[in-house]
Amino acid sequence: MSRISATFENLRAADKKALIPFVTAGDPNVQLTPAIMHGLVDAGADIIELGVPFSDPMADGPTIQRSSERALEQGVGLRDVLQIVSQFRQTDQQTPVVLMGYANPIEAIGYAEFAQTAKTAGVDGVLVVDYPPEESRELTKQLNASGLDSIFLLAPTTLEARMDEVARTASGYVYYVSLKGVTGAKNLDLSEVAEKIPQIRAHVDLPIGVGFGIRDGKTARAVAELADAVVIGSRLVEEIEQAAPEDVVARASALISEIRQALDNA
């Protein structure tokens, strides 16, 4: 069983929901990222989504765009991100790490080499925003051959017929984009999420994570009532952006710990 599936199974047994923070690798710098990741785990994170910086992040709002730009200014590329994961793995063999990013850095390395290197580094899953299932068969084949999960997005605009297509290709979990918009948007509609999740469950037999636009413990808790996992991205990246370097780990951890409490205390 993959580290991701095992994590969801343990949480289910404990009657808990998964908390998945997102941070951009290399923001504010490469040295701090592993420390931030460890801090997030200590604060109650179950899985970490690690953003791979890209020059043209079309699906991201201003907050994550800026974090990507800060990482790129230091020349952080996909190979550096894999180094960061290796470093994280030296002291944490339990927490799954999912890479989230765009197609072109992977294209530049090549599918087979990427899948092997990512596996060796200790990556568990890969979510590529601009590879819908139809365009990612070859990559998914390589990822699965290396024992990595292929994680896909579902959106408010996804028709039910298409959910079957995603179900055939996806493993680990699926990521439901809670709103029509970019990361960090402020138009989250809980009733729409409540309507969509049962539809997805009818077609997809994987845990469902929900993200985009979840900014506080209260919303996280409400979303967790409906789904299996809550993703916190832009709100966390804001903390990192605003903190002085020596406070970054503490402030990121404090936010995640607050959301953990909101999720756990019924």
């Binding site: 197609a103 365009e135 997005l153 605009t157 298409r162």
Partner: peptide, 20 residues
């Protein structure tokens, strides 16, 4: 029919736009 010119072209977009 999926928009490919040999290996080029295609539909490389986030899920929200696939239906549109």
């Amino acid at each position: 029919e999926r928009g490919h010119f040999g290996v080029y072209g295609g539909v490389f977009v986030a899920e929200t736009l696939v239906h549109a």
